[in-house]
Design a protein around this nucleic acid. Structure first.
Length: 413
RNA sequence: CGGGGUGUGGUAUAACGGUAUUACGCACGAUUCGGGUUCGUGUAAUCCGGGUUCAAUUCCCGGCACCCCGACCA
């Protein structure tokens, strides 16, 4: 894409009311726009990143047998009353609205209830199980205090997967499969080395859940890590009993602030019993379905990447989620650069071409701010030597590549 | 939800109760052309409502919004 066609612009300063690094950088770079507290619009560059993250997640969910569907945002009050999760005293994050005739509706903040009811229409026999179903959807949560930029929003994209199994053993097999997929996802989006599966409260459903926690000072959680085993647990479950359970000792634990980027739960029969999701086993006996749920917030993942990978000059996107692969800068060499832009684009290499009529310094600093993985500079020196200057965003090293060699260089990198 | 704070051009800021400042941006012209070039001209603002006052961006009251700390976060 030509940068002169992009309707967003960079800013030198962030709005004074944005404190979090992710929001400051994403706003300055023109990736997001703040609509209200805790409510952000995604602009073209930001949407590309978000979509790339979603696609990584989708690939991994599909790879473990997940089937994608789309549930509704509008929620049926009567359904949620059956599990006692409609009342504001039970769930304080509801946004509620009403039909013109007065019928109350909710805006979905999670989807265990509707998907469980939906599955009663689909699952009747052990032959129908197991099932892994997931969706990407905008969730609404009336947070008492929005903060941390795009990491704690009142309206946000979430991937939620639900598993349905015949037995506890089958459930554990599905759970392990999703858990492994989550590890691959965080690895692929560039958060692998610093993201831990941490034991956390299981809520009302089971003894533990596991949270995927990315170590960052911007985090709102505190986790304790046993660095030799790689095991971790949330501060909320740090008791002697739990430590004994997990075979950990306090002396070996290191405390870190962290961001919860994913959470996986065993639900058991918590929802299948009240909502009547049962199946007939091989003997003809009726049994409730064993369930699990698994969430990742792509927007929070994006904010986390911005928090932990960016540097003083700006954003740094891993190639897997970057809005473009190459940022092509013309320093008064527009004709040649356009030729190269056409060649890269024709080869399927996603390229943002800075064709603006502005100074070299402007282009360099904006390039650093946007955080595209590779910067390619074509200037007078290039025209003389026949070579482009290629610099990875994460490195200070510059490589000279001949004009003719650029396409194959980026096909291989 | 408890406590604290802040609302001035698109952004960041200044102004004792007395002509709304400056920088960035944007427009035009010139200049420059490998790390946010330089110069000139121009453009654009006091959250909303009430009160005190000769006079309110400034003081007071109410509302709204935003931020911070804490609590909360199946």
């Amino acid at each position: 894409m030509r940068q002169t066609q992009l309707f967003t612009k960079t800013k030198k300063e962030a709005p004074k009311d944005e404190v979090s690094k992710n929001a400051q950088l994403l706003i300055r770079a023109g990736f997001v726009h703040k609509e209200m507290a805790g409510v952000y619009s995604f602009l073209p560059l930001g949407l590309k990143v978000l979509s790339n993250i979603i696609n990584v997640i989708r690939e991994e969910m599909d790879a473990i047998g997940g089937q994608e569907l789309a549930l509704t945002a509008l929620q049926d009050k009567e359904l949620w009353q059956k599990t006692d999760r409609w009342d504001d005293k039970q769930v304080d994050v509801w946004f509620k609205t009403a039909l013109k005739n007065g019928t109350e509706l909710g805006l979905g903040w999670t989807h265990e209830e509707p998907i469980t009811r939906l599955m009663t229409q689909q699952i009747a026999s052990y032959r129908d199980l197991p099932v892994l179903a997931y969706q990407f959807q905008t969730k609404f949560r009336n947070e008492t205090r929005a903060k941390s930029g795009i990491m704690r929003m009142r309206e946000f994209m979430m991937k939620d997967m639900y598993s349905f199994a015949r037995t506890e053993a089958e459930h554990q097999e599905l759970y392990a499969r999703v858990r492994a997929a989550y590890q691959r996802i965080f690895e692929r989006v560039g958060l692998g080395g610093r993201t831990y599966a941490a034991f956390a409260s299981g809520g009302a459903f089971s003894k533990y859940s596991e949270e995927f926690q990315t170590v960052s000072d911007a985090g709102e959680d505190l986790i304790y890590i046993d660095e030799t085993s790689g095991q971790a647990l949330n501060k909320e479950v740090l008791t002697d009993e739990v430590l004994a359970d997990l075979g950990l000792t306090r002396e070996n634990l290191v405390e870190k602030k962290s961001i919860e980027v994913g959470n996986i739960f065993t639900l058991g029969t918590k929802f299948s019993v009240p909502l009547g999701l049962t199946f007939k086993d091989e003997t003809g006996a009726m049994a409730p379905v064993m369930m699990g749920c698994y969430g990742i917030g792509p927007g929070r993942v994006m904010g986390t990447i911005a928090e932990v990978l960016s540097d003083a000059a700006g954003l740094v996107w891993p190639a897997s989620v970057a809005p473009f692969k190459v940022h092509l800068l013309s320093l008064n060499a527009d004709e040649k650069t356009l030729e190269i832009y056409d060649a890269l684009t024709a080869a399927g290499i996603e390229t943002l071409y800075d064709d603006r009529d502005t100074s070299a310094g402007d282009k360099f600093s904006d390039s650093d701010l946007l955080g595209i993985p590779y910067r390619v500079v074509i200037g007078k020196r290039s025209l003389a030597s026949g070579q482009a200057e290629v610099k990875p965003r994460v490195s200070a090293d510059v490589e000279m590549i001949s004009f003719e060699g650029l396409v194959s260089y980026f096909t291989q990198h």
